[in-house]
């Protein structure tokens, strides 16, 4: 089984978000970038397929040279090789188009992406990719097993979960549950040394035009001070929620 894990390179969850150039660009100054948490679960699940079922695992990112440390980290965790499509990730559609070419050229059976990235939170790349390469698609995936070309997945739905049957070729949008937090792998010294020798292939992008364009960013309006209610006077809280906030 040939597996491709899509890795988006995102600001660390503790990052303060700021913008520059008249609020038209994300300010990367002082921001630490990491593997998107949803992709980290997917990468570890892919490593298990490799170890238990003899799969090969490649990782891919669509982005500039600045994302290479993130791909090297994925190699240090255990991926066999990495691909960077040398294009700015302008919108979900353009990224999916670039990934579709990688999937078609590489003949992958299983593509593991994340449910959503924590930067633009579009939750659109995996579904678009699946539609473009004509593969089956399961998102919010919390468990995945593959036998031959049959796949069984569990996905979260509003208010519960469901088990589904499908077949390769398959794209999933994964999240925590594919593996648990305690299963995540931290690159060790040997992994880091080996990663230096593994291939990181830079491929030139195909020609696509983004369908959407973020023209201006803004931050939420600053919040007023909290209204404190005495623990012995909870009637006041009920009244505030009813008459002022009008939520009960």
């Amino acid at each position: 089984m040939k597996i491709l894990v899509c890795i988006s390179h995102v600001p660390d969850t503790t990052s303060k978000i700021n913008f520059t150039d008249g609020d038209t660009k994300f300010d990367t100054n002082g921001v630490q970038f990491v593997i998107n948490p949803n992709d980290e679960f997917g990468l570890t699940r892919a490593m298990w397929f490799k170890e238990k079922q003899g799969a090969s695992v490649d990782v891919v990112n669509v982005g500039g040279p600045e994302t290479e440390p993130t791909l090297r980290k994925a190699l240090a965790i255990g991926a066999d090789s990495a691909i960077r499509v040398n294009a700015e990730a302008t919108d979900g559609f353009a990224v999916a188009k670039q990934l579709a070419k990688v999937v078609n050229d590489g003949g992958y059976d299983l593509v593991i992406a994340g449910r959503e990235s924590i930067d633009y939170n579009g939750a659109m790349v995996p579904g678009m990719l699946a539609a473009m390469v004509n593969a089956n698609f399961v998102t919010n995936c919390i468990s995945l097993e593959v036998e031959g070309s049959d796949a069984t997945a569990v996905r979260e739905i509003d208010g519960g979960k469901e088990t589904v049957k499908t077949a390769l070729p398959l794209v999933i949008g994964g999240q925590k549950g594919l593996v648990e937090e305690s299963d995540l792998r931290i690159p060790n010294m040997r992994g880091i040394m080996m990663a230096r020798k593994k291939p990181l292939n830079v491929v030139e992008p195909t020609d696509v035009t983004a369908e959407t364009k973020a023209v201006r960013f803004e931050k939420p309006a600053p919040k007023g001070a909290v209204k404190l209610v005495d623990a012995d006077n909870l009637d006041a809280l009920v009244t505030l929620l009813h008459t002022e906030a009008k939520v009960i």
Partner: peptide, 20 residues
């Protein structure tokens, strides 16, 4: 056609044009 949507997990908003 321009819409405002949350981004960066609600830490910010983006105003985005759809050009199709």
């Amino acid at each position: 056609f321009t819409v405002k949507h949350s981004a960066f997990t609600n830490k910010a908003f983006a105003n985005t044009e759809i050009n199709t």
